[in-house]
Simulated scan of single mutants.
Amino acid sequence: MPANLTPQYHKAEEVYKQAKTSEEKIAALEEMLRAMPKHKGTDHLQADLKRRIAKLREEESRPKSKKAAFDPFRVEKGGAGQVLLLGAPNAGKSAIVARLTSAPTQPTPFPFATQGPIPGMMAHEDVQVQLVDLPPITPDYFPSGMLGLVKSADGALLVADLSSDLVLDDLETILAKVSEGRVRLFDPAVQTAGAPADSDEVLLVRIPALLLANKGDADGAQDRLELLRELYQGRFDPLVISAETQEGLDRLPGAVFGMLKRIRIYSKEPGKPVDRSSPFVLKEGDTVLDLAARIHRDFPEHLKQARVWGSARFEGQAVQRDYVLRDRDVVELQVDL
């Protein structure tokens, strides 16, 4: 079957050939994967692109030599995804992380108390999501190391301070700073990541994000919230919370997991009960073949059959290796090693 690759794919491929850094190569490869038609004719090409992306990411995550400069903004990823909190001074980022995780972050009434990234794990049902508290972003402060962390993250929480009359200016500063670094934040519930208009846009890093309207209990918060909704209509849908009163925080783990577009898959060995203790976390759109590769690198080559409970038409149905999985599916793989 012919691959029938799109013009967007070839444009991204050309950008990949010209890319100099691992970051640029990963962005171009991911765009090639996104723009590629998904059918049997591209199975091998999809697998090759995913291997190349994984290899580049592995190289990026390897410890640098002792002679290499220390990067204070390097945070090893954990859980179902890494989500950064971006905000102005005193927006309440640390208070949110403290409420939702056991991270050693200390909310304070004065700005710049957070000097470096502080990760913590937030529970959502049977998975964990990594939240990372970051120093505030201002017109005069946005170090390159922080930009690198933003580019590698799986998602972001843009924290707006509803107690401040400068809330709109603060948000515009943050969005401008990340945009200068070729990062586009978008709310996947409101808009798509968008197809690149030209080869330059291929190198844009698109990060899913939620706009958290914090301090919803403050005086004048409702008026400032209306301004937020008016300014960001069609781009972000503000989620009103209060780290102080905990208003809306119970909805945040589910909203974050949904933003990440992840699915949980439970494995089942032939003739044995389902293992629901620790689901495999995959991306929406991933297939049986992707699950096999996640379990063991040799499984895709030796996969004989797969059976699915949940999204299949009937329980335990035998499916093809390109079958697209759904959240909470149970999968039994039969491999011939």
Rank of each mutant, 00 (worst) to 15 (best):
T108W: 03
I26L: 05
F280M: 14
S65K: 13
R262M: 03
D200P: 05
G248S: 05
E14P: 03
A68H: 13
A113D: 12
L86E: 03
K177M: 06
E58Q: 15
D322E: 01
D161N: 11
D161S: 05
R235A: 12
V202W: 03
Q334W: 05
E201H: 07
R235L: 15
L5H: 10
D250S: 08
I263G: 15
V75A: 00
H124T: 10
A293S: 14
Q246W: 00
L239G: 03
V288S: 04
K77T: 11
R326I: 01
V240T: 10
V97G: 09
T138W: 04
Y266V: 07
S199K: 09
A209Y: 09
V83N: 06
Q222G: 07
V15A: 15
E201L: 06
A197L: 14
S152A: 14
T192F: 07
A293D: 12
A95I: 02
S65Q: 12
P300D: 09
P104D: 09
L162F: 00
F112G: 12
G194A: 05
V274N: 11
L212Q: 04
Q128K: 12
A27E: 13
R224W: 03
N90V: 12
E24R: 01
P104N: 11
D200A: 09
L333K: 07
Q8Y: 05
R99Q: 10
T245Y: 00
Q46E: 13
D198R: 00
P104T: 11
R262D: 10
D161K: 03
Q106Y: 06
K38M: 00
E59L: 10
S94D: 04
D275H: 09
P89Y: 02
D169Q: 14
G254T: 01
F236A: 09
F186E: 08
E315P: 08
I265F: 15
L157P: 05
D169K: 11
Q8E: 15
Y232P: 03
V281C: 08
G145K: 02
A69T: 13
G148P: 15
S22Y: 13
A292Q: 10
A95G: 07
G248K: 11
F236C: 06
R235F: 03
E269W: 08
F236I: 02
H296S: 06
L260W: 10
P273Q: 13
A318W: 01
G216P: 06
A12R: 00
G78V: 10
A221F: 00
V15C: 02
T101V: 01
K20Q: 15
I263Q: 10
I174E: 09
G271S: 06
A160D: 02
V83A: 10
D329A: 05
P104H: 09
V308K: 07
P111I: 11
I263T: 08
Q222W: 05
R251Q: 13
L252Q: 07
L86R: 01
D170P: 06
S102L: 08
K50V: 06
T114A: 04
V202A: 00
G248M: 04
F186C: 14
K50P: 04
W309F: 08
V167C: 09
T192G: 15
F112K: 10
K304Q: 11
T101Y: 00
S144G: 07
